[in-house]
Design a protein around this nucleic acid. Structure first.
Lengths: 193, 193
DNA sequence: GTCTATAATTCGATAGAC
DNA sequence: GTCTATCGAATTATAGAC
């Protein structure tokens, strides 16, 4: 009873699950929800389509799992007030280049209700608290967070989704130099009315 | 030979064509390319699906026709340098609320290559020339135009597509007050390096 | 745990009657 | 000019063998 613990009861399931998730992220990021078929994802992962169903139930479950990992959020406490803008833009761009989850989320969110709701969740749980930390008037917090999101997501849209050539060719330092003052202003400047 | 000209040789074709286009714009704007089915569009227009094929050949042709109308562009000559930003944001928001074409274009552009290319066309033919008019250094024109697009499309994305509540609730004057200085800076200010 | 086979829909597109 | 009927392809999802 004490000695024999078989090496691992589940044969290759963990590796298979991971391969499916990685392929799913790539496909969702490249094609959006509808055109990222379970068949294509399974083919990329080198397994049978029915395995996808077995592990994730249905296509919605697969998408939810594929975009479930935590991302972003430089912790608000570590940021000095005078360069929130720069820190935020830098961190945002780095996250975006690092993996496909954000692109998948944005592309799917444009045509799929579940995707849009997940994006709203990220906004609510990550951007709102950060704005709350730096904005004086609590009543202005949601609007300011939305403005920050509009600029950050707008750059991601033109750069990674629509691929406007000048937006693609912009190097990281240029993008940060231009956007940081904008984000800084949205978060900390008085209302420009 | 001279007297009898039948009221109209083509019975109702013109009205039918228009009804199809309007329904198509609404569906593409609401659902994106894949989920906006020809069947659903035909039903909205109150005609048979085969009529859509007869008039527009195939689904791609229908989409091209639905987003073919000219939009935007406040003519560059009429704008004073010191308030390009305000004028541009105001005009952009008005166009966006006025009809479904821009939302359709954005939603489709996120998952469909033809849609993305059409958006690039709008950028190239409408935003680039405008930036060329106000930017000193010709070499910086494309980047500045891309930055302007990123902010304007980013607001449209969060407001009309992803529907972040604070972005939706922003009224026009607030949006203009916040975004105008950003756009103004992207177009006319020196590079903030 | 993995795959084969297939059911059940749904969609774009075509042919042809009226 | 409009509609009926239908084809052929592709998709999600299931049942069951190994």
């Amino acid at each position: 009873m004490t000695s024999s613990k078989p090496p691992a009861p589940r044969r290759r399931s963990e590796a298979t699950r991971a391969a499916i998730l990685e392929a799913a992220r790539e496909r969702f990021a490249a094609d959006g929800y509808e055109r990222a078929t379970i068949r294509a994802i399974a083919k990329d992962a080198g397994i049978d389509p029915s395995m996808v169903m077995r592990y994730y139930g249905n296509k919605e479950g697969l998408f939810a799992a594929a975009v479930a990992i935590d991302l972003m959020l430089p912790d608000p406490a570590s940021l000095a007030r005078e360069d929130v803008g720069r820190a935020l833009v830098t961190h945002f761009l780095a996250q975006w280049e690092e993996n496909d989850v954000l692109t998948a989320l944005l592309r799917v969110g444009a045509t799929n209700e579940a995707g849009a709701e997940r994006m709203q969740g990220v906004f609510r749980e990550q951007v709102l608290p950060l704005a709350r930390r730096f904005c004086p008037d609590p009543e202005q917090v949601p609007a300011r967070a939305a403005l920050v999101s509009s600029q950050l997501l707008g750059l991601a849209l033109t750069r990674y989704v629509l691929r406007f050539p000048p937006a693609v060719e912009l190097d990281t330092e240029e993008a940060v130099a231009w956007l940081a003052p904008t984000v800084q202003r949205y978060l900390t400047a008085p209302y420009p009315g």
